[in-house]
Design a binder for these strands. Structure first.
Lengths: 243, 243
DNA sequence: CAGTGGTCTAGACCACGGG
DNA sequence: CCGTGGTCTAGACCACTGG
C-alpha cells in the first residue's frame, strides 16, 4: 500500500488529508485511530503522528474520549505564516494569478555591521535582488533579498533569481535554509514603495517582514525584507494555547 | 524522579530546557537520546517527544547522525506569535514591567452580522472590554474584546476583566478557547488610538491583530482587536519550511 | 460500560555523519 | 565502522466521553 520514502507518517498524512478534503468522512467524525491503523495496515503510532500533523495544520481536531473530527471552518484558511511558502504560492492560494518580475540585481559592498552578521570577509560583496510580485497583474509584494556573493557556487541565470530564496540557496549555494527569523513591522509606505507597489498618493499603511535566514548550523545565509499590500493580501495565523 | 501529571514528556521537556538554559551542556552538543533516556529513566520515545517540542520552540536543533545541539542564537527569541501568550507576559519577556488598566466595559447590542457569526440570539447583547497595557508605564497595547453576554455564567469583578481572554472564558463562561484565527493588519493610528497610546501627532504606523476566538466545537466565543506600538514591542516569528 | 484519544514502554531497523 | 537521530511496530494502561 505504501512505499518506503517519504516517511510512512507523511504518506498517511497526505492520504488522510485528501480523503478529508474530498469529504469522504462528511463534516463529522472520522474513523478511530485503531480502525485507521487496521485499514491502512500501519501501527497506531504512525496514524497518531499523521493525525497530529493534520491537527497542527488545523485540518482536524481531537477530543479525548469522543473522537477525531473534521475542522470544517478551517479548511478555508489558506495562509499559514509559520510556514515558509513561496510568495507566488501565497498569492495563488488567495485566489489570484501570480507573476514575478525582477526589478533589480546588483553586487555591492555593504556596511561593516552587516558583514559581521553574515560572518563574512570584509572584502566580500553582497548580491542584492529586488523583485515585485503581482496578483492578477496588480503589484502586491515587493521583496529585497541579500545573499553574500561568496556563498554562490554555481552560475545562475536571470530566471534563477526569480526563484524563492528557499530554492535558490540549496541549488546555487549548497546551503539549506533551515528557518527564517521574522520581525513583523508596520510602516507607512515611502515614496519609493508607493511607486513600486502602485499605491495611491495618500499615506498608506504597509506590512513588512524583516527576515534573517539561517542554515542548519545557525549561520546567517540570507537577509530579506518584504512589503505587502494588505488590501489585497490577508496575512493570517492560527494561534494556540502555549505548551 | 517524575510524577504522573503533567505528562512525563512535558516534565522531561521542562527539565531539559532548564538544564540547557543554565548552560549545563555548554553551547555544543547535548547527550544522546539513548543516554538521556537512561539517565532520566524514561523510554527513548518520551525523550524524543520532549526534544521535538524543544526543537519546535527553537531551543535546540538536531542533525541525523551528528547529534542534538543547543541553539544558542535563538535563546534570545522571546516572543513566539503562534502561541497564545498573555500580553502582560509578552511585555515582560521583552524586558519591561507590565501593567494593565481597564479603560471601559459596557454591554451593548451589535450589528446583526456579528450576532450571526456568534451564532447568538438577535436579542443578545455583547460585553465589550477595552484595556490598555503599559510597559514601564508607557502605553504599548490597546485591546478591544467582545464576548456574547449569554456565555457568561458566573458573576465577575472588575479585576476579573483584567485577566486575559484565555483565562476569563473558562472561568466565567465554561468555555475553552481552543484557538485564535488572527489577521495581521497594518494601519495608521486613528486620532482615538493616538490619544490612547500616547503617540506623537505625526501619522504613526501601528500593527493590529484582528482575532476570532473559537472553542473546541469551532464556535466563535470571542472577538478581539489589539493595537501594538511597534517601536517598543517587536513581534517576531520563526518560519520553517512547510511539510 | 464500551470505545475513544492520551501517554508510555521496549525493541527494532534505517540513514546519515564523522572518525 | 560505530554512534547518532529518524522511523516504525506491538502492546499496555490511563482519562475521558457518551450512551
Amino acid at each position: 500500500m505504501f512505499k518506503r520514502s517519504p516517511s510512512l507518517t507523511e504518506q498517511v498524512k497526505a492520504h488522510l488529508k485528501e480523503r478529508i478534503i474530498n469529504a469522504e468522512f462528511g463534516v463529522g467524525r472520522i474513523p478511530s485511530e485503531m480502525h485507521l491503523a487496521e485499514e491502512l495496515n500501519v501501527s497506531r503510532n504512525t496514524i497518531r503522528d499523521a493525525l497530529g500533523r493534520l491537527e497542527m495544520e488545523g485540518v482536524i481536531f481531537r477530543r479525548q474520549g469522543a473522537g477525531t473530527f473534521v475542522n470544517e471552518a478551517n479548511l478555508l484558511v489558506k495562509t499559514r505564516l509559520e510556514e515558509i511558502v513561496p510568495y507566488s504560492t501565497l498569492i495563488e492560494e488567495q485566489g489570484y494569478r501570480p507573476t514575478v518580475e525582477l526589478i533589480g540585481v546588483e553586487k555591492k559592498s555593504v556596511s561593516s555591521d552587516l558583514i559581521e552578521k553574515f560572518d563574512s570577509d570584509p572584502a566580500d560583496s553582497m548580491l542584492v535582488i529586488q523583485k515585485l510580485f503581482r496578483a492578477n497583474d496588480q503589484p502586491v509584494i515587493f521583496t529585497h533579498t541579500i545573499i553574500p556573493t561568496h556563498l554562490i557556487k554555481q552560475t545562475y541565470t536571470t530566471a534563477d533569481l526569480l526563484k524563492p530564496t528557499y530554492n535558490f540557496l540549496p541549488n546555487f549555494c549548497g546551503e539549506t535554509l533551515a528557518y527564517f527569523l521574522t520581525d513583523i513591522v508596520p510602516l507607512i509606505a515611502t515614496d519609493a514603495l508607493t511607486e513600486k507597489l502602485g499605491l495611491p498618493a495618500t499615506p498608506t499603511p504597509l506590512l513588512s517582514f524583516e527576515e534573517m535566514g539561517y542554515n542548519q548550523d545557525n549561520q546567517l545565509v540570507a537577509k530579506a525584507a518584504s512589503y505587502f499590500r494588505d488590501d489585497l493580501l490577508r496575512l493570517r495565523l492560527i494561534r494556540r494555547p502555549g505548551g
